[in-house]
Write a protein that binds this DNA or RNA. Structure first.
Lengths: 419, 419
DNA sequence: TCTCTTTAATTTATTAGGTGAAATTAATAA
DNA sequence: TTATTAATTTCACCTAATAAATTAAAGAGA
């Protein structure tokens, strides 16, 4: 039923695997639960859970949920028709939504999405700003992000001291050690430190992440089966990125994100945005497909090399209309995707391989070439031991995932702060 | 000086991060240390260390080392010329070599190496058996391995109950979940369970690992700087494999080893042993180089497609003699190696990238093509953030690494067993 | 030689945070 | 109303840490 975590008795204090922290983690993952169930899933004794929760309630981190109607048990035998059983009814505990709020920002080519959520992870408000991001310099970008966050705080009447954390997902390359943002196709500036000014402006923890990592976390949070073992999520869209998640967490050597899009398919190939030639991205990303299609097709020019969603939809429509040159283009993209999957499986041997992002809306046209190449490019038994999923997720997955990631960091900080 | 590990106070019992376990781990890594130093590097208090060590000594896991002459401090200011300081002299503690013994076996193409070590990791005896491994069936293989282990026990007068663990490193593919050995170029049989019969024969824990992983662990143990962060070790020899080590441990999603050798360089290429075409291994492994060289050169045939060390030495000698066709072959191998490194860096973004194995004895001839291709194939800033090391290690590294790996498992089992 | 200083290790009292068993509480069923 | 049931809390105790004080073993100096 609910996964029985190995009990870790008689330890304490040390933050992330303190029993306090584990209670919060379980509640975060499995929603409102009564104390008995918390004891079962953490392996702690009832008295321990009782004591810990009463302290957490005193700190206002938890609260007793009055929606006693919702049932937490999966076993229908234990309930009568009203969802009520004999005996003292269980009191459901939840993360107290009023404990504080967090903000998630997704920064992409020509688009800044912002979302504010309460401590339980429910969205309170969100905004979407279309703007020519490549035209911004470092200062303007910071100001813009800060203004967006401010607008969200104001819209939900959130005083600044209630803001617990800010998560920023970026398309591009984030150095996990320094937190600096090295390069992004969405920006003309490079090697900027976005975290620091935002942290100074709000005095809240700022969490940076690659957008593929954010999507990967969002997907793993949504489907518990993906949160077990090693999962690799390839994001196909404006670029081709990858996020790696181990047991539902984005812990990794050097930053959880991979530059899979810049593996080369041959020593000579189409020009990639990165300056090198023959990158997987240069066959598969939307800008590459659109650019190549325009060499033989009459299509409207893309603003700053970046086709809009509408323009990509138009391209797909034309391809489905039966143009053999376009068909060939998408077949090429399918092969490039297969190579990305093959390299990932060969190097990482993940349990789960997830293909996500808007680029997969054209997967029907890539499928044949993709499957054909994949079979040639991966050892059969290796392919067999990896489950491949298609999730042509919409952009909301990024902020969703970023909310989860930010909350996890906020939880940890609080556990460390209160010893 | 000695790296200060974050103290993890007031927890216990739970095996692998119990404080007992951490003491053993520190001693395993840093050799004989006095109690004061143990307290410093674990962050525990003196009384805690005192109590824990006295219990470990009672269990005969530790002992007081009488080699008081050796100095454990790196700071020369704190010592006088004799290596002695004022005050009560420190009593060095060591892992008690007499606590038990372990055996490491390396199973490769036409070669079985076996080594027996005491609990402190010092080698006591070893053997080397050349035999046509591909001629063996499952039963004969098991019998052979068991006989080799028996011979080692006898040679060192080790009673069976003193054998704490057996580590077996195999060239090929090990399924970490089931422990079964799926495929190896050294064997004609597939999907065999070597661990079970050996475990039954000796009643000791059996640890299986890929040979590249064993080498990776051995290298990380030998050079502490490699044990920090994510390190990827590519082994070039009879095949091309990779081992991934995170913070000195071989923990990984699906088994710590990678099938990097079977990433494809193009959709059509030379035939690989695995049955597919264009694998990196088919350009880089010794059998491929030798096979291709024989198409235009008069060389003695290799026994069961596997050239001997002498034959490979001959090939290198001829190539250095200046045959342009051989030069081209090794350049091709250099490019294949560059692609392997490029794919690894792009996917994993490791802190350390180690190139190891006998195949690198020809690296001087591959170097130019390797460096040229590497620069084209990896994003420059990504290449810059990865340190690449050359370690054309000899075969001893495999058993060395396997000893470390086996001892770690044995330590853990003991910690769990004694609560 | 005897004492002082220094450093290592241990003893003692205390504390944090867990445990199991039993008591308490709040509901349904009879 | 009373029995039954299940969730939660109380109580007494236990383990493994800590801090402070003590003991141990050496060199240095009179």
């Amino acid at each position: 039923m609910i996964d029985q975590i190995e009990p870790r008795r008689r330890n304490s204090g040390m933050a992330r695997d303190s029993n306090r922290g584990r209670l919060v983690e379980v509640l975060r993952r499995q929603g409102p639960l009564p104390r008995v169930e918390l004891a079962r899933s953490t392996g702690l004794s009832f008295p321990a859970v009782s004591g810990l929760t009463s302290r957490l309630i005193a700190e206002e981190l938890l609260c007793e949920s009055d929606t006693a109607a919702t049932s937490w048990s999966d076993d229908p035998d234990e309930e009568d028709v009203n969802g009520r059983r004999r005996g003292r009814p269980a009191v459901l505990l939840t993360l107290n939504p009023e404990f504080g709020r967090i903000i998630a920002v997704s920064l992409r080519m020509n688009l800044i999405e912002t979302l504010i959520a309460d401590f339980s992870g429910s969205s309170l408000a969100q905004s979407r700003l279309e703007i020519a991001t490549r035209a911004l310099d470092t200062g303007a970008l910071c100001d813009l992000v800060i203004a967006q966050i401010d607008a969200m705080l104001e819209a939900t009447a959130t005083p600044r001291h209630r803001l617990l954390g800010i998560g920023i997902a970026l398309q591009g390359i984030v150095n996990a050690d320094t937190g600096r943002h090295l390069w992004s196709p969405a920006l003309s500036v490079t090697d900027i430190d976005l975290a620091k000014p935002v942290r100074q402006a709000f005095g809240a923890e700022v969490v940076m992440a690659n957008d593929a990592v954010a999507v990967a976390l969002g997907l793993c949070a949504a489907e518990p089966s993906l949160a077990q073992g090693l999962s690799a999520t390839i994001m196909v869209g404006h670029g081709v990125g990858m996020g790696v998640v181990v047991d539902g967490e984005a812990r990794w050597g050097a930053g959880a994100s991979s530059e899979i899009g810049h593996i080369k398919l041959g020593s000579n190939g189409p020009q990639c945005r990165c300056g090198q030639r023959g990158c997987i991205e240069a066959h598969l990303a939307d800008y590459a497909l659109y650019r190549d299609a325009r060499t033989f097709l009459d299509l409207p020019p893309a603003a700053s090399q970046q086709p809009s969603e509408a323009q990509m939809a138009l391209l797909r429509e034309r391809a489905r209309g039966g143009d053999p040159r376009l068909e060939h283009l998408f077949q090429q993209a399918g092969r490039a995707l297969a190579e990305a999957v093959a390299a990932t499986i060969s190097v990482l041997r993940p349990h789960h391989m997830i293909l996500a992002g808007p680029g997969l809306q054209a997967f029907d046209m890539m499928r044949h070439a993709y499957e054909e190449r994949l079979e040639q490019a991966v050892l059969p038994w290796l392919l067999k031991s990896t489950a491949i999923y298609l999730r042509p997720s919409e952009s909301a997955a990024i902020v969703e995932g970023m909310v989860r990631r930010t909350l996890r960091v906020v939880d940890r900080n609080h556990m460390e702060a209160t010893e």
